[in-house]
């Protein structure tokens, strides 16, 4: 999880990918992920094809490989888990460098690694080419419940504010010699969490007052509508359609 710099997730640019309406990109990425997950794990080359497709999208969007690789650390915990599967897996076993491994486990490990990695890269490219605000507008266009979109909007707006408050508390704790070494120190962290909750909640109340002061009556005015034409939908569909083509034609 990034340290809350959500503005660093997005790379401004003016490419075909950047210009696509967010709702098209959202649908395209989810569809791509579904195709990937539905692919049988024995089809090695198909996964290679998917990776090439993503590389092509990254190239068109001018997102450098380094940027993608650095953000892929979120996957790390499950990579470790995936490596453990062959060791603890069931069924027929092979010995490899003196370690007894489950054949099925190796397959499962590969399956999770390949699919998770492709999914993560697709999500990273989506976030890198879509402004957070646009992403929410796209979700709204896709009929995601209004209230959920609004909650997410407020969350993103205040994420940095809340994280800043948390960082200040951490500095305050540490400048007085505190370090979280074991569970016995958890209560100190928890008291900070309590203070953070009160601050967040009270800010929520003040924001609500500020909204009321400007005539809020329970519905958010929709200010920006992003519409997509057929051409844009077709452009966005290129990724999942190409993926499906690789799957069925190879």
């Amino acid at each position: 999880m990034g340290a809350g710099h959500h503005h660093q997730l997005f790379r401004a640019g003016d490419t075909v990918v950047h210009r696509l309406p967010p709702q098209c990109k959202l649908v395209a990425v989810v569809a791509f992920a579904v195709v990937v997950v539905a692919t049988p794990r024995e089809r090695f080359w198909v996964f290679g094809g998917y990776l090439l497709l993503l590389a092509a999208v990254a190239a068109v969007a001018r997102v450098p490989a380094r940027f993608v690789l650095r953000r892929m650390v979120v996957e790390l915990p499950f990579v470790l888990f995936a490596f453990a599967i062959p060791v603890i897996g069931l069924g027929e076993r092979v010995t490899f460098w003196g370690i007894s491994l489950s054949v099925d486990g190796l397959w499962a490990s590969w399956n999770i690694l390949a699919k998770a990695t492709l999914g993560v890269i697709a999500s990273i490219l989506l976030a890198a080419t879509t402004e957070p605000r646009a992403m929410l507008l796209g979700a709204q266009r896709l009929r995601m419940p209004q209230l959920l979109v609004q909650i997410a909007t407020f969350m993103l707006r205040y994420l940095d504010v809340v994280l800043d408050a948390m960082r200040r508390m951490k500095v305050a704790r540490e400048s007085r010699g505190f370090q979280a070494r074991n569970l016995r120190q958890a209560p100190v962290l928890a008291k900070s969490a309590g203070a953070l909750f009160i601050r967040s909640y009270e800010r929520g109340e003040r924001v609500h007052l500020a909204m009321l002061s400007r005539g809020y009556t329970g519905t958010m005015p929709i200010y920006r509508e992003i519409s997509a034409d057929v051409g844009q939908w077709l452009t966005a569909a290129a990724l999942p359609v190409a993926a499906a083509a690789v799957l069925f034609l190879s």
Partner: peptide
């Protein structure tokens, strides 16, 4: 709902 849940969500994330 929207502002309160939004702030609480930010809190949980933190």
């Amino acid at each position: 709902t929207a502002p309160m849940a939004g702030l609480v969500a930010a809190f949980i994330f933190a």
